[in-house]
Amino acid sequence: MNESIRANDSTILCRQRHCTVRNLSATGAMLDVTSPVGIPARFTLVIEAEHASKPAVVVRRQDKRIGIRFEAERASSAV
């Protein structure tokens, strides 16, 4: 199950911990976090200032920095 991490401008609140979005691109971002503990492997990054949400997967964890890759939104398949 994916979890949402809500963002205001470039500062996001991750389960009551502050995070900062760094190096945002079309394919992913780097997050600086106060603690990486409890941040799921998959979540939806919500950037309220841009009215955008993107499914993301963690591809790198190093100390208090997390690298994420945006996933393509899954289209529902018609049967």
Rank of each mutant, 00 (worst) to 15 (best):
N2Q: 06
E3Y: 09
E3V: 12
E3L: 14
S4C: 03
S4N: 01
I5L: 08
I5K: 02
I5Y: 08
I5T: 03
I5V: 14
R6P: 04
R6V: 05
R6C: 06
A7V: 11
N8P: 07
D9W: 08
D9F: 08
S10C: 03
S10D: 04
I12M: 11
L13V: 15
L13Q: 15
L13N: 14
C14F: 15
C14M: 14
R15Y: 14
R15N: 15
Q16I: 11
H18R: 14
C19P: 14
C19I: 05
C19W: 10
T20I: 09
V21M: 02
V21G: 05
V21D: 09
R22L: 10
R22K: 06
N23D: 11
N23I: 00
N23T: 03
N23C: 01
N23G: 04
L24A: 01
S25C: 05
S25R: 09
S25V: 10
A26V: 08
A26E: 09
A26D: 12
A26R: 11
T27A: 03
T27G: 12
T27L: 13
G28A: 07
G28Q: 02
A29Y: 02
M30Q: 07
M30K: 02
M30V: 10
L31R: 02
L31T: 10
L31Q: 03
D32A: 14
D32P: 06
D32I: 11
D32L: 07
D32G: 11
V33R: 10
T34V: 05
T34P: 00
S35L: 01
S35W: 03
S35T: 04
P36S: 14
G38C: 12
I39T: 08
A41H: 01
A41K: 12
R42V: 05
F43V: 08
F43M: 06
F43E: 05
T44Y: 00
L45C: 01
V46M: 00
V46I: 01
I47L: 15
I47C: 08
I47T: 12
E48V: 12
A49K: 13
A49L: 07
E50M: 09
E50Y: 08
A52D: 12
A52C: 12
S53C: 09
K54T: 02
A56I: 04
V58Q: 07
V59D: 00
V59T: 03
V59S: 06
V59M: 01
R60M: 02
R60S: 06
R61F: 12
R61L: 12
Q62K: 08
D63K: 14
D63I: 04
K64G: 08
R65A: 06
R65Y: 08
I66H: 04
G67F: 00
I68W: 03
R69E: 02
R69I: 01
F70G: 04
F70R: 11
F70C: 11
E71N: 07
E71Q: 10
A72S: 10
A72I: 07
A72H: 12
E73L: 08
E73T: 14
R74C: 10
R74M: 13
A75I: 14
A75L: 09
S76P: 13
A78F: 07
A78E: 04
V79H: 09
V79W: 10
V79G: 10
